[in-house]
């Protein structure tokens, strides 16, 4: 039984990790969901035993351990909440960036990086004010864009 559980958890974790490496953000979320399921499965596998529910056990009955059930349930609920939050974030990203590919996000970061580089350059050459104004422009454009999307 343990080996079956272990295999199932491993497959879940593996597929989750595979999906996590995909470019599409929705797939990334799916990957995280699978990994969370692997964790829940491990909780169950680690301490599952059959028996009477503990609310009324007779003297001869084997009670089943209620703790792993409570743990699994709690982990499921927490997983649900966090995945929902993540999905909401991905949705926001889709609205703002108009894509769910990670490349677009990376491009934003590269843009910021380039801006910083320009600023550093300006620093060295002691040109002031000009770049600062440019940066403010960029922020303003971003703001406007957000406002339009909303």
């Amino acid at each position: 039984m343990i080996i079956a559980f272990a295999l199932a958890a491993a497959v879940l974790f593996g597929s989750g990790a595979y999906l996590l490496l995909k470019r599409d953000l929705v797939r990334m979320v799916a990957g995280i969901m699978l990994i969370s399921q692997a964790a829940v499965l491990t909780i169950i596998a680690s301490s599952l035993n059959r028996g009477q529910a503990v609310i009324h056990v007779g003297p001869d009955d084997d009670p089943s351990d209620p703790l792993p059930q409570a743990l699994a349930l709690t982990a499921l609920v927490i997983g649900l909440a966090t995945v929902a939050l993540l999905l909401a974030m991905v949705h926001r990203v889709v609205v703002v960036f108009r894509t769910s590919e990670q490349d677009a996000l990376a491009a934003t970061e590269a843009e910021v990086e380039a801006r910083l580089e320009r600023k550093r350059q300006a620093d060295r050459e002691e040109v002031e004010g000009v770049e600062g104004a440019k940066e403010d422009d960029a922020e303003a454009i971003e703001h406007e864009e957000l406002g339009r999307v909303r």
Partner: peptide, 16 residues
């Protein structure tokens, strides 16, 4: 803003 959103996504995914 865009940067904050991206930061949040990275933060959430990794820490989850």
């Amino acid at each position: 803003k865009r940067r904050q959103l991206r930061a949040a996504l990275v933060f959430t995914a990794v820490n989850l």
